[in-house]
Computed example of a mutant assay.
Amino acid sequence: MHIFYTPDITQGTYTLSEEESKHCVRVLRLGVGAVVNLVDGKGGFYTAEITSDNPKKVGLLITDVKLEFHKRNHHLHIAVAPTKNIDRIEWFLEKATELGIDEITPIITDRSERKVVKDDRLNKVITSAVKQSIKAYHPKLNEAISYHAFMNLAFEGDKLIAHCIDGDEKSYITDLVQPQQKYLILIGPEGDFTPDEVNLALNKGFKPLTLGDNRLRTETAALAVCFEINYLNR
């Protein structure tokens, strides 16, 4: 199955971008009459036939449309401190997209080792994972924001913060939330959230979360949360 990400698609006919056209003709060696699939990132899954195999502008005829393709029964938003090694956060984005995630926000905390995040690069990782895992919904990657600014935003649904500070009584995800809801979960940097950051979250209505006795890396913790929420909503 050959899948292309086409966020601006409309029903009827469509022309692939020059980059996607080159990949279609030069790499995949597809020609007129070949059948491909398209996803718009908003739940649309399209079947199309190639009508023109110009390597700069492949023409397509849409033959079938499925809306809300594999629509999820919940909404998962993970706000995570970007790792110093950008490859680690890219790995998380790829795997979280494959498992199922709706929204990601990089948060810059007091102990964050990385303060700058390049959205274009990370969005390409997400898009590639969308196509690879046959997803019709493209997770939303928000711009990086400071932790304190993020905490001033309004959110609906269950709000959790995972941290390792001793003293607070923490619970597991299954004890804190119910299926088919909206979830916002905070994951801190390698050095964890500061006590002041944790207290701010608790005062904002976040519930303290434990992921077990093992100390996890940032990207591992974020992916563990993604897995548990999806398992809860299976």
Results as ranks from 00 to 15, higher is better:
Tyr5Glu: 04
Asp8Ala: 12
Gly12Pro: 00
Glu19Ser: 15
Glu19Lys: 14
His23Asp: 15
Val25Phe: 09
Arg26Val: 11
Val32Trp: 10
Ala34His: 13
Val35Tyr: 13
Val36His: 08
Asn37Glu: 13
Asn37Phe: 14
Gly44Glu: 08
Gly44Tyr: 04
Phe45Gly: 06
Glu49Asn: 09
Thr51Arg: 04
Ser52Pro: 06
Asn54Ser: 12
Gly59His: 10
Leu60Pro: 07
Phe69Pro: 07
His74Met: 07
Leu76Ser: 06
Ala79Ile: 04
Ala79Gly: 05
Ala79His: 01
Ala79Leu: 05
Lys84Arg: 15
Lys84Leu: 10
Asn85Met: 12
Lys95Arg: 11
Glu98Trp: 03
Glu98Met: 06
Glu98Asn: 01
Ile101Asn: 04
Ile101Pro: 01
Asp102His: 09
Asp102Pro: 06
Glu103Phe: 05
Asp110Met: 12
Arg111Phe: 07
Lys115Phe: 14
Val116Trp: 08
Val116Gln: 14
Lys118Pro: 14
Thr127Phe: 08
Thr127Cys: 10
Ser133Glu: 05
Ala136Asn: 07
Ala136Trp: 05
His138Thr: 11
Asn142His: 13
Glu143Asn: 14
Ile145His: 00
Ser146Asn: 13
His148Gln: 10
Met151Asn: 07
Leu153His: 07
Phe155Trp: 10
Gly157Asp: 07
Gly157Asn: 08
Asp158Tyr: 14
Lys159Ser: 08
His163Gln: 09
Ser171Trp: 06
Gln178Arg: 08
Leu184Pro: 03
Leu186Lys: 00
Gly188Thr: 10
Gly188Lys: 04
Pro189Met: 09
Glu190Tyr: 07
Asp192Cys: 04
Asp192Glu: 01
Phe193Ile: 01
Pro195Phe: 04
Val198Trp: 01
Leu200Gln: 09
Lys207Val: 14
Lys207Ala: 14
Pro208Trp: 05
Thr210Leu: 05
Thr210Lys: 02
Thr210Tyr: 03
Asp213Ala: 15
Asp213Ser: 15
Arg215Lys: 13
Leu216Glu: 05
Arg217Ser: 08
Cys226Ser: 02
Glu228Gly: 03
Asn233Asp: 04
